[in-house]
Design a binder for these strands. Structure first.
Length: 489
RNA sequence: GGCCCCAUGGUCAAGCGGCUAAGACGGCGCCCUCUCAAGGCGCAAUCACGAGUUCGAUUCUCGUUGGGGUCACCA
């Protein structure tokens, strides 16, 4: 049978990387076996409606490279794919359950439910007291007739225990008394997430349910629903949570579910910070899953390779901490391996901002590629091109090169005229400097150091002396060299 | 608090009764080198604890501790 998985986000306008990783694993689970990946929008909570939020979902999936086979935007044989458009189908299912004695009408007011909670003993957590579970039929009819608002609740088993199998966690057993009579249809007639989820998954032919491990303990309730309808229970693949590390008020390191306080956790937040979509996906694929066989120890994967390598046996059970350092490294790997066109496409906005012309593109690509871990760093790396301030002359002093204020002054004095007359290409500049060094029996470093400092005005530059001069152009270089020379007295 | 799950270096993690306990990020050192990177080489760093089972436990069982999740007319 063809595998069908689904990604069922609710439109909140924000795509958490945890959700995105779930989507990724759902995609990979299906695609590894040649199955279908379905997108379904779960918008049964009208109170949480956010304008344009579904576009965020489409854009995320598209940018992330997770192409769905069926969904609200492209259709499919199991539509509609938006829950609010399926609204009419849920209640009849719930009523079918009521008729079968597997669910019941509950007329309890919100106030009564709140009182239940309020009256609970200190530290005690109480669920619904099943007040309406065994109401006499006459009373039910009466209330229905009178138009008393109601919800439909699932009749959960009171005793015994439920066991189910999960592909990652193995057999899970829960005492049935832990299962409460959850609401299936809300007072407004809308289904709850739990209920709609089961109905949708079944009617859409979802074979593998992939979701976070927070559903581990409520899964028996879902199963009870499948059983009540006589439907086949899907294969479950629960995923370990993604955690974040932070420091509490006392300065202690604490680990908790990844959230805003750990830094950017939204997909587009990360993208805006300069992380490449491919790198983000690559990184999160490895958070909680480890490749095996021919892919063992591999760190960099294209989406196609992930599809080939993915195997649910490699999914780990323990939660993992989101490591921004490693993400940064993965991102850098992608940059280093980029072809020129892609590199330029990403770098161009920054080049334009700095007023850099086409003539420098190739050289910049060469010197920037190994030096940036994110494209957003370009501005800072090249700041010296447009800024040249009266830098601290002590920059000319460099122990390793044996450069001092004196040697710098002498060498600049000698070399400025030479450079002024020479050609302005990489070889010419390099040769001029090294030949001068050789002629005076100086180490290259002793010559390169002051020239680079004088030209850039900063200690750290991407690329070396010749590259800095080239980027600056002859006029600007000579101007700076002369100015620095003058300042050296 | 009840219930469920988890537990290998700082982090991601391999391991599935016998290994000098992989690999990666990060850290540190060396090399290369005009700075910074990149690259190369190397080093430090892990089986939470306690009982069992076994000839032998990181690996199996139980307990302890620690961490996480969950207990809605939210999804």
């Amino acid at each position: 049978m063809k595998i069908r998985t689904r990604f069922a986000p609710s439109p909140t306008g924000f795509m958490h990387v945890g959700n995105l990783r779930t989507a990724l694993y759902e995609y990979l689970t299906a695609k590894h076996e040649g199955g279908d990946f379905i997108l379904r929008i779960e918008d049964t909570d009208q109170e949480r409606y956010v304008e344009g939020a579904t576009d965020v979902i489409y854009n995320t999936l598209k940018t992330a490279g997770l192409t769905h086979d069926e969904g609200p935007d492209i259709g499919g044989d199991f539509g509609p794919y938006v829950q609010s458009e399926r609204l009419s189908m849920y209640k009849p299912y719930a009523e079918e359950l009521v008729k079968a004695g597997k669910a019941y009408y509950c007329f309890c007011s919100k106030e009564r439910l709140e009182d239940l909670k309020k009256n609970a003993k200190e530290g005690e957590v109480v669920g619904y007291d099943r007040h309406c579970r065994d109401l006499p039929q006459s009373e039910i009819d009466e209330k229905l007739q009178a138009g008393v608002p109601y919800v439909i609740r699932q009749k959960s088993p009171l005793t015994g225990e439920s066991t189910y199998h999960d592909c990652v966690y193995g057999d899970i057993t829960i005492p049935n008394e832990e299962l409460d009579d959850q609401v299936l249809i809300k007072a407004d007639g809308f289904p709850t997430y739990n209920f709609a989820n089961v109905i949708d998954d079944h009617t859409m032919g979802i074979t593998h349910v992939v979701r976070g491990s927070e559903y581990l303990s409520s899964t028996p309730k879902y199963n009870a629903l499948y059983d009540a309808f006589g439907w086949e229970i899907p294969t479950y693949i629960h995923l370990p949570l993604i955690m974040g590390k932070s420091v509490d008020e006392e300065g202690k390191e604490v680990v908790s579910k990844l959230s805003k306080r750990h830094g950017s956790t939204g997909f587009f937040d990360l993208v805006n910070e300069g992380f490449l979509p491919e790198a983000i996906m690559n990184y999160i694929a490895l958070l909680g899953w480890c490749p095996a066989g021919e892919y063992e120890n591999r760190e960099i994967f294209t989406m196609d390779e992930l599809v080939k390598a993915f195997d649910i046996h490699g999914i780990s059970k323990s939660p993992s901490v989101f490591d921004y350092d490693k993400l940064e490294w993965v991102n850098a790997e992608y940059i280093k391996n980029m072809d020129s066109d892609t590199f330029l496409k990403n770098a161009k906005p920054y080049f334009d901002k700095l007023g850099i012309g086409e003539g420098s593109y190739a050289l910049l690509e060469e010197i920037l590629k190994p030096r940036i871990t994110r494209f957003t760093q370009i501005e800072e790396k090249l700041a010296f091109l447009n800024n040249y301030e009266a830098f601290d002359l002590s920059l000319f002093e460099h122990k390793k090169s044996k450069s001092t204020l004196e040697t710098s002054k002498a060498i600049l004095g000698d070399i400025i005229p030479v450079l002024a007359e020479g050609a302005w290409d990489r070889d010419a500049i390099t040769n001029a400097l090294t030949e001068y060094a050789a002629a005076h029996e100086y180490k290259n470093a002793l010559v390169m150091w002051p020239v680079r400092i004088a030209a850039a005005g900063v200690a750290v530059t991407p690329g070396g002396c010749a590259e800095v001069l080239l980027l600056l152009g002859k006029d600007e270089s000579m101007r700076r060299l002369n100015e620095a020379f003058k300042r050296l007295g």
